[in-house]
């Protein structure tokens, strides 16, 4: 029993780590196609990561331990987040260790470390990036929590396993409140993963960059870890979305037989969500920075509205 759990958990961790760059590559490829370019191919993120891993890292003289430790902390946080979401199977070793609230907490931890590390060297860009990241974060975190509370109220528990179990059991019934939650979730996902219209992942423009400003001083394996964590974070966010809003095909049984099918379904969901994300990014223009709080405030209020609608309908 425990061995089965361990196997499942290990496979999921390896899947999350290995597939994240592919998802990033897929989104980039879709964006290239949508804007009539040929693109660099699906495997480009892997090539970049391996190149970075091979290089000798360069670290500033003034860097403290915090700066060097942060890439590892962020990477570990993202992998753990990916490990505890029932996106393939509800029977996971780590699923009982943390619920939806703890999941949001793990993301916050990673963000706080990243922001602190950016302030470590005392560069203007770093502290500016830290400030902007925390601005996006303190608005996105409650919005994420409120999104997670809607299904939590439906199933009466914040445990992700219970939520997925409950949602999947009811088959095709679509919950009205989940419409609001889903709309808010898409907005939170865009903001938290530094995608358009909140942040442009392709540029390093001083006036607008948010996420990239945090990583300016990293190089070599540290940069690789940071980039990899960002890719994992995106996969995890889409995975949570898939588990909450499209919970079909997640295996509930104790055996390992259903796993290949569940993985295939998840890959399909990820590909579809990636295409959708690319479409959104291609269609939207970047918001000015002071409009971002408005964007996230809207997400936050939509999620709260979802809670109210749930109360109105009673389910």
């Amino acid at each position: 029993m425990i061995a089965h759990l361990l196997v499942r958990q290990t496979i999921q961790i390896l899947f999350v780590i290995a597939m994240a760059p592919l998802l990033a590559g897929w989104i980039r490829q879709c964006r290239a196609w949508l804007s009539n370019r040929s693109g660099a191919g699906l495997l480009q993120p892997y090539r970049e990561l391996f190149k970075l891993l091979r290089k000798q890292p360069v670290v500033a003289e003034e860097a403290s331990m915090l700066f060097v430790a942060t890439p590892y902390v962020v990477f570990a946080a993202m992998v753990v987040a990916g490990a505890m979401i029932p996106m393939i199977t509800t029977r996971l070793l780590l699923a009982g260790a943390a619920d939806a609230v703890a999941l949001a907490g793990v993301f916050t931890m990673a963000r706080i470390f990243a922001a602190l590390a950016a302030m470590d060297l005392g560069t203007a860009f770093g502290s500016m990036g830290a400030r902007r990241t925390m601005l996006v974060g303190f608005l996105a975190e409650p919005a994420l929590l409120m999104v997670l509370f809607t299904p939590a109220l439906i199933s009466g528990s914040t445990s992700l396993v219970v939520i997925v179990h409950d949602l999947a059991r009811h088959g095709v019934i679509l919950y009205p409140s989940m419409v609001f939650a889903a709309a808010a979730y898409v907005m939170v996902t865009l903001a938290e993963n530094a995608r358009l219209p909140v942040d442009n992942p392709d540029t390093h423009l001083e006036l607008t960059m948010i996420h990239e400003a945090l990583n300016l001083e990293y190089s070599g394996r540290y940069l690789a870890l940071i980039e990899w964590s960002a890719a994992i974070k995106l996969l995890v966010y889409i995975g949570i979305g898939a588990a909450l809003f499209l919970p079909w095909g997640i295996t509930q049984g104790p055996g390992l037989a259903g796993l290949p099918m569940a993985y295939a379904l998840l890959v399909a969901k990820l590909a579809a969500a990636g295409t959708g994300l690319a479409a959104i990014e291609t269609l939207s223009a970047k918001l000015r920075l002071f409009r971002v709080p408005e964007f996230l405030g809207t997400a936050f209020l939509l999620a709260v509205l979802g809670l109210l609608v749930r109360y109105l309908f009673g389910h």
Binding site: V58, A60, E61, V68, E217
Partner: peptide
């Protein structure tokens, strides 16, 4: 193969 090289801050 090699440890990190210590240099002055890059700062773009």
């Amino acid at each position: 193969a090699r440890g990190a090289r210590r240099v002055p801050v890059w700062n773009c």
